[in-house]
């Protein structure tokens, strides 16, 4: 009786295990921007799961059971890397028991490895806050980086799923063409932003500032990942008098208190940027993300 039940259970589990094979490539994206990018390139050849949403602080995600379950049946993990996900992704990958997606395997892809990193710290000390040894990990705020990652990701998808390699290359070509056209449009419309002095809540927009030529005066956070206190903000207000910033940039997931306090006293607008796909109602995909970001930045300039 018991043996029979066990056999039945084993058979059921085998059927479950066999299910995902043959279907589209299961992609586990650590953050929404890479989920959106995988959809752009892979189309119906991929089945994409975004582990986090734009309203979550990507540094502080928990290794939830649902993430482990999704990682278990994934063929490709697309992570940002540069230690952005260090607080949760290593546990998810290890606990999943999925050998194909471990770092070093073709099933593990890091976006940050494809681009030139900014703000690589000259010294590593936790007294400097939440520093990332390999540089600022928020690379998705520069569309040029997105294109570089897209190229590498298409190659990786073709490697994993050779049968659909042509489809991935076509997906990339189609995306790259539309993306380059969009970039030209964005750069043109962003001309007034060049040299505009801004404050940032967290050093989330280094790559965007590099792309658009924004002048970052400093961060409200005294150290990366540390909430600003009143003395810190008062000090920044003094600096604002000498070198006035035009606006404060805050990612959608961050707490409003400090930037609102500062904006009110400095009489400058707080511009809440979507930061990633889904960070605002208007940023449904990658194109909309930059459309909306630029619209908000230009509105902040007025």
């Amino acid at each position: 009786m018991i043996v029979k039940t066990l056999l039945r259970l084993a058979a059921m589990l085998l059927v479950l295990a066999a299910l995902p094979a043959g279907a589209a490539v299961n992609v586990f994206a650590s953050v929404p921007e890479w989920a959106a990018l995988a959809r752009e390139i892979g189309g119906d050849k991929v089945n994409v799961f975004a582990a986090t949403s734009a309203l979550q602080d990507p540094h502080r995600i928990e290794a939830r059971p649902s993430l482990i379950a999704r990682a278990r049946s994934s063929q490709l993990v697309v992570a940002t890397g540069a230690d952005l996900e260090i607080g949760w992704l290593p546990v998810v990958l290890r606990e999943s028991g999925n050998a194909a997606i471990q770092p070093g395997k073709p099933g593990y892809f890091e976006a940050a490895a494809q681009v030139r990193m900014l703000e690589v710290p000259a010294r590593l000390d936790r007294a400097d806050g939440d520093v990332h040894a390999s540089g600022n990990p928020h690379i998705q705020t520069d569309p040029r980086n997105i294109l570089k990652v897209a190229e590498a990701l298409a190659g990786r998808l073709a490697q994993l799923d050779g049968a659909n390699a042509v489809a991935y290359q076509a997906g990339l070509a189609n995306f790259a063409e539309r993306w380059k056209a969009a970039m030209a449009r964005w750069e043109q419309s962003a001309a007034p932003l060049r040299g505009a002095p801004v404050w940032v809540q967290h050093r989330s927009f280094a790559y965007m500032a590099d792309w658009l030529g924004l002048k970052e005066l400093g961060a409200l956070e005294p150290k990366p990942g540390v909430e600003p206190g009143s003395t810190q903000l008062a000090g920044l207000l003094e600096r604002q008098k000498v070198t006035p910033g035009r606006m404060i940039l805050r990612p959608a997931y961050a707490r409003a208190t400090a930037s609102d306090w500062f904006g009110e006293r400095a009489h400058i607008p707080v511009v809440v940027l979507p930061f990633t796909v889904g960070g605002s109602p208007e940023s449904g995909d990658l194109f909309a993300l930059f459309d909306d970001t630029l619209r908000r930045l230009l509105a902040g300039l007025k």
Binding site: A17, S66, I68, A69, R70, N98
Partner: peptide, 12 residues
Amino acid sequence: VRWVAPTDLFLE
């Protein structure tokens, strides 16, 4: 020995 089931619901 641990085994994680390939299901959307986490089952270990």
